[in-house]
């Protein structure tokens, strides 16, 4: 059955605390952190972008399992911060993992769910026999305008999954999606920062679509929340996934391992992929994982996954750093350094 052959995540080393951002704007950091459930977020180094994060995540995946790069027939990189408006991130990833030239590649954008859209595409190509392996990556150096609520969460990170059907470490039992035209968050061409609909991004957007896809999946599989060992929901903050999990009937301990937002922030297209990586870091054969992403605009992709024995025999999980290791390896920046890292200082041209 089609599934995940190997996986790898990448999180930059730098962090900024919500308190430090709040101080600049005269806000109360404790209140904001408690409200969002996000206490700090990752910040890219000066020489990191969504492409370097994608490459390093893909290399971490290949470090765990001996996959012949020539057998990779497709690469999809989902991001809303591709370094170029025109020129694919995915082919550079292909070159950097030695998968070129016999492969197809494209960059995806669907707000925060472009990474899971890539997984679905790879599944289709593998199932149809068009390719042996496909690589799906969600990676972002998320943008949040100064003083905007997003600034407290917009983070950097990503994860890569090699999708195939020979000895997967986790079988993807099924996937389904729920999509409508719901303008809760957008970024126009040429604009540096996204805009959003405030509270409109909640009930009619995030909650409606995540629940829509989740119910669809459980109906199709004939399952209920208690059947799953882990659940991962899109995490623009920690509050939304906790609330939606409760609404659906999942318990806090089911979402804990995949909920990275409190210490990572929102890595947009990287959010669910990093959460899933965190679960795969600890999962045992037979564990069942429920995944639902969310991308503004809006849509959700749901996955029903079962971990196989291959997670113990076919990959070396220690060959690349775990999400937990990367979350703990951190250097704090002050706001001025953060502004420099994120290019928020107006420079002389």
């Amino acid at each position: 059955m089609v599934g995940i052959i190997t996986y790898g995540a990448y999180i930059p080393q730098f962090r900024i605390k919500a308190d430090e951002i709040a101080k600049v704007w005269g806000a109360n950091g404790t209140e904001i952190s408690n409200g969002l459930g996000v206490f700090e977020k990752s910040v890219p180094d000066m020489d990191e972008d969504s492409l370097t994060i994608a490459v390093n995540a893909a290399r971490n995946a290949l470090a765990r399992r001996d996959v012949n790069p020539a057998d990779i027939g497709a690469i999809y990189v989902g991001s809303e911060s591709h370094p170029y408006a025109v020129k694919p991130t995915s082919v550079t990833v292909g070159e950097a993992i030695g998968a070129t030239p016999v492969m197809t590649a494209a960059d995806y954008e669907f707000a925060c769910k472009a990474g899971t859209a890539g997984i679905q595409t790879c599944m289709g190509l593998v199932k149809s026999g068009m390719i042996k392996y496909g690589v799906a990556i969600g990676s972002d150096v998320a943008q949040g305008a100064p003083s905007d609520a997003l600034e407290y969460t917009a983070a950097a990170g990503g994860a890569a999954f090699v999708i195939g059907n020979d000895d997967p470490i986790a079988e993807i039992n099924d996937t389904c999606s729920y999509s409508t035209d719901t303008p809760d968050f957008w970024r126009r061409e040429g604009q540096a920062y996204p805009r959003h609909g405030g509270r409109f991004s909640g009930e009619p957007a995030y909650f409606k679509h995540v629940q829509g896809a989740a119910h669809l999946m459980m109906d199709r599989m004939g399952t209920k929340p208690a059947d799953y060992d882990y659940a991962i929901f899109h995490q623009p903050n920690a509050k939304f996934p906790r609330n939606v999990a409760a609404m659906l009937g999942f318990k806090p301990e089911q979402i804990k391992q995949g909920l990275c937002a409190p210490r990572l922030g929102n890595t947009y297209s990287g959010a669910v992929p990093v959460g899933l990586s965190s679960v795969l870091d600890v999962a045992k054969p037979g564990d069942r994982i429920f995944v639902t992403s969310y991308g503004s605009g809006s849509g959700s992709d749901a996955f029903d996954i079962t971990v196989t024995d291959a997670i113990l025999t076919k990959i070396d999980r220690k060959a690349a750093p775990s999400v937990e290791t990367m979350l703990n390896d951190k250097i704090y920046l002050d706001y001025a350094q953060y502004a420099k890292h994120k290019g928020k200082i107006v420079m002389q041209k």
Partner: peptide, 12 residues
């Protein structure tokens, strides 16, 4: 001097 290093992918 003598510190062990490994390669990584970055923007130049």
């Amino acid at each position: 001097i003598g510190m062990r290093v490994k390669s990584t992918f970055r923007k130049i």
